[in-house]
């Protein structure tokens, strides 16, 4: 699968090359306030909890609509944890940090 990522460059990106323990992908549909908020929330959270161990890809479905089908994305924004497995999906603007941490299994759920 070749994907052309829209360069909304995530701030907390670690050194190029090599595998990251955490592979995260954020699906958005255009640069709406909600998608920007989601990315900001994600960056902040990763810097806090996963510093140096993660990589974030941002996928704009308006640019790559076929990915909505291939990756089974309905809601936007959707954050997908590709690694570590299993795949987890977190939808919403990630404003509820507690739930994001639960979703990423960085914190045990209820």
């Amino acid at each position: 699968m070749t994907k052309t990522e829209k360069p909304i460059v995530p701030k907390g990106k670690a050194a190029a090359g090599g595998e990251f323990e955490w592979e995260l992908r954020l699906y958005v549909a255009g640069q709406t306030s909600r998608s920007i908020a989601a990315l900001n929330n994600l960056n902040q959270l990763c810097e806090t909890h996963l510093k140096g161990r993660y990589r974030i890809e941002v996928v704009d479905l308006l640019v790559n609509p076929q990915l909505s089908r291939e990756d089974q994305i309905l809601a936007v924004p959707t954050l997908v944890r590709k690694l570590p497995e299993p795949i987890r999906k977190i939808i919403g603007d990630l404003s509820n940090t507690e739930r994001v941490l639960v979703g990423l299994q960085l914190r045990p759920g209820k």
Binding site: T78, I91, D93, L94, V100
Partner: peptide, 9 residues
């Protein structure tokens, strides 16, 4: 697989 963490569409 889904966790809801705020506003979405």
């Amino acid at each position: 697989e889904i966790e809801e963490t705020g506003e979405y569409d």
